[in-house]
């Protein structure tokens, strides 16, 4: 089924595009330590709000233009004519552990200290926005994935059990679902965060956010899955399975799950953006990821200063663009998937 789906997606230009964009984003995220020239915490207070550095060719080799600060108050930098620093590719630098395991020191590109390469400028403490985007993606892009996995598992188990067994189990599960859906999610988000934060270190905020988002998210999924389970359980093939004495758990996993899988996949794809946005919202409000960690939402929060707008420090808003692109891509991919899985919807739409 997965192979068939993949083929169908790749047959559609839009699907192909979305899949490539997401593939690229996630590849960058996975190899961020290799791709980023700096650590997200590498400061250079001399180079606050540095604009993106120009890349020039010298002796047929790429170099970075060197700038000097002309007005520290207005964060104005002027290129120094003729002064450049060579960019070295695949050169060894500071050691790191790839995925926290494999020791390595090679980076895609870097320049000799004390010069710096800022592909997307620097922030208020001279940290490289490009590197921070890459490291921030580790949080922002994975939170949706992990969150949705937990949500869909919970939603399937609770919704499936409620729909299949019915009766009192169903009643209890659905009242709980209604309660969670009835509370506006931003309040719930903030309230849960308040309740949970005491029990966790600031560094564990990632975990807290995942838990919060999953606690909120499963309700909607469970309700829909319950409805589908209700109609599935009357299907003769489910009855046949019961007549032959199959255990309820196996009926759930062998018959319900494969038949709900395509729905689960579409729903998951369509709800990942909600997780990315929720993380951004929490971090933007200062309730999410904390320094020294980084995420796109946190970066946006740090770009809230008036300076950003008056001095046109546009590069500090790139996390917003990154969120935008990711969210749109997931939504479009979800739509494409839905068209593949359920062609009827498409016909109604047209």
């Amino acid at each position: 089924m997965v192979k068939h789906l993949l083929q169908e997606i790749l047959r559609r230009p839009l699907g192909m595009l979305c899949l490539s964009v997401l593939g690229l984003l996630y590849a960058c995220t996975i190899f961020s330590q290799f791709l980023a020239p700096y650590l997200p915490t590498d400061q250079d207070l001399e180079k606050a709000y540095h604009p993106p550095t120009r890349i020039v060719l010298k002796d047929w080799r790429p170099h970075v233009q060197i700038y000097e600060q002309v007005d520290p108050a207005a964060a104005r930098y002027e290129p120094v004519h003729g002064e450049t620093a060579a960019i070295s590719f695949f050169a060894p630098g500071r050691e790191y552990r790839l995925w926290g395991l494999i020791p390595a020191e090679t980076r895609l590109f870097q320049v000799e200290e004390p010069h710096r390469i800022y592909l997307l400028g620097s922030d208020g403490t001279g940290r490289d926005v490009f590197s921070r985007l890459l490291y921030g993606a580790q949080v922002s892009l994975s939170i949706g994935f992990i969150g949705i996995c937990i949500t869909m598992t919970l939603g399937f188990l609770l919704g499936g059990v409620a729909g299949y067994f019915g009766g009192r189990v169903d009643f209890l599960a659905m009242r709980l679902v209604e309660f969670i859906i009835a509370v506006p999610s931003l309040y719930l988000l903030i309230a849960l965060r308040g309740a949970l934060a005491e029990h966790f270190e600031p560094e564990q905020m990632y975990l807290v956010i995942v838990i919060i988002l999953s606690l909120i998210g499963w309700a909607g999924a469970a309700r829909i899955i319950r409805g589908m389970a209700l109609s599935l359980r009357e299907r003769p093939f489910i009855l046949a399975s019961e007549v032959m004495g199959q255990s309820s758990i196996k009926v759930l996993f062998r018959h319900f799950l494969p038949n709900l899988a395509s729905y689960l996949l579409v729903a998951a794809t369509l709800s990942i953006p909600a997780y990315i946005l929720a993380e951004a919202a929490l971090s933007f409000l200062g309730l999410g990821i904390q320094e020294p960690g980084t995420s796109w939402g946190l970066m946006l929060q740090q770009a809230q200063e008036l300076k950003v707008f008056t001095l046109n420090l546009w590069w500090l808003l790139t996390p917003g663009a990154a969120i935008f692109i990711t969210v749109i891509t997931f939504n479009v991919l979800g739509d494409v998937l839905r068209d593949i899985v359920d062609p009827r919807q498409q016909m109604i739409k047209r």
């Binding site: 003769p236 093939f237 046949a240 018959h255």
Partner: peptide, 23 residues
Amino acid sequence: FFPYRKKIQMIFQDPFHSLNPRM
């Protein structure tokens, strides 16, 4: 009742829904 599930079986009316499409 489990042993009786081996003795008594059922054939269903609707052949289009009586087989799991994913199996």
